[in-house]
Computed example of a mutant assay.
Amino acid sequence: MPNFIKTTEQSSLYDDLEKMSLNTILTNINQEDQKVALAVQKVIPQVEKLIEKVVEKLKNGGRLFYVGAGTSGRLGILDASECPPTFGVSKDLVIGLIAGGDLAIRNAVENAEDDPRQAEKDLESYHISSQDVLVGIAASGTTPYVLGAIDYCQQNNIITGGITCNEGSPLAEKVDFPMVAVVGPEFVTGSSRMKAGTAQKLILNMITTSAMIKIGRVKGNKMVDMQLSNEKLVQRGTKMIMEATSLDEDSAKAYLLKYGSVRAVLKAVENE
């Protein structure tokens, strides 16, 4: 790809960062961050097309996989890990994989992202199939581990999407549904955990939140299937029930603890 230029690696628009006052550093970072939402806005049509396929597969028993390395991999794992407590789905519905395995969530694993064949092994351990959808996440669009995952999926008739921040990248060229949010050079040259990472997080938020709404995991604007994993969430669920019914706080909480979810309580009250 002779014309492929990594804008994420281009020199920062700012120089002499160490000579800036703290306020100037923060102001400039914020100025750059404001470009991210606009870059993501431009790719909403592409994100929508991917989500339509995700919803279709999830409704028919399929799963959503995220694959990435470094920051990109961690963001995929973060998004996947929030789905069970937020929407009450199985931990096997959205699965995040990172080059180097669980160790790489907290620590850099040397050369892990450079092995395209490891992705194939990781995916095979989950018995990924054409029922599923895989989204590769790579700010550069060139990560071998991610590209290996895409190649494997294409060989096995599995739908693929890709989140990247470089136009014309190998990832964008390979996948069925490219989502390319061009955020430009980073404040610290090449530090793609910044704007690129933020863009990836925003798109991941869109994918899972929209998909969960469309498969019926939100009622009105409430997380009626959330797991009651702490007192804060019990209180939130109690308030939801009070707003939707004539129950007082004590009764609403008692029902919630009995039935285990807001949705189950609302159904029980409706049938009484």
Rank of each mutant, 00 (worst) to 15 (best):
P116M: 01
P116V: 00
P116E: 02
R117W: 07
R117Q: 12
R117I: 09
R117E: 14
Q118A: 11
E120N: 05
E120C: 07
K121Y: 10
K121E: 13
K121L: 14
D122R: 07
L123C: 08
L123S: 02
E124A: 08
E124M: 14
S125E: 14
S125M: 09
Y126F: 15
Y126W: 13
Y126H: 14
H127Q: 09
I128A: 00
I128M: 00
I128S: 00
S129D: 02
S130M: 00
S130C: 00
S130Y: 02
Q131G: 00
D132Q: 03
V133T: 09
V135M: 04
G136W: 02
G136D: 10
G136K: 04
A138L: 04
A138R: 05
S140K: 09
G141V: 15
G141E: 14
G141M: 08
T142P: 09
P144S: 11
Y145Q: 10
V146N: 11
L147P: 13
L147K: 03
D151R: 12
Y152W: 11
Y152K: 03
Y152I: 06
Y152Q: 05
C153R: 04
C153S: 05
C153N: 04
Q155N: 11
I158L: 00
G162K: 12
I163K: 03
I163G: 05
T164S: 14
T164Y: 10
C165S: 14
C165Q: 10
N166S: 11
N166Y: 09
E167Y: 02
G168D: 14
G168V: 15
S169I: 15
S169P: 15
S169M: 14
S169K: 15
L171S: 07
L171G: 06
A172L: 08
V175A: 01
V175G: 00
D176A: 06
F177M: 01
P178G: 10
P178I: 02
P178H: 12
M179Y: 11
V180R: 01
V180I: 15
A181C: 15
V182L: 01
V183E: 12
P185Y: 03
P185L: 02
P185W: 03
E186S: 08
F187V: 08
V188K: 08
V188Y: 11
T189Q: 03
T189N: 01
G190E: 08
G190Y: 06
G190K: 08
G190W: 05
S192K: 07
R193Q: 02
R193N: 02
R193V: 01
M194H: 03
M194W: 04
M194V: 06
A196G: 02
A196R: 00
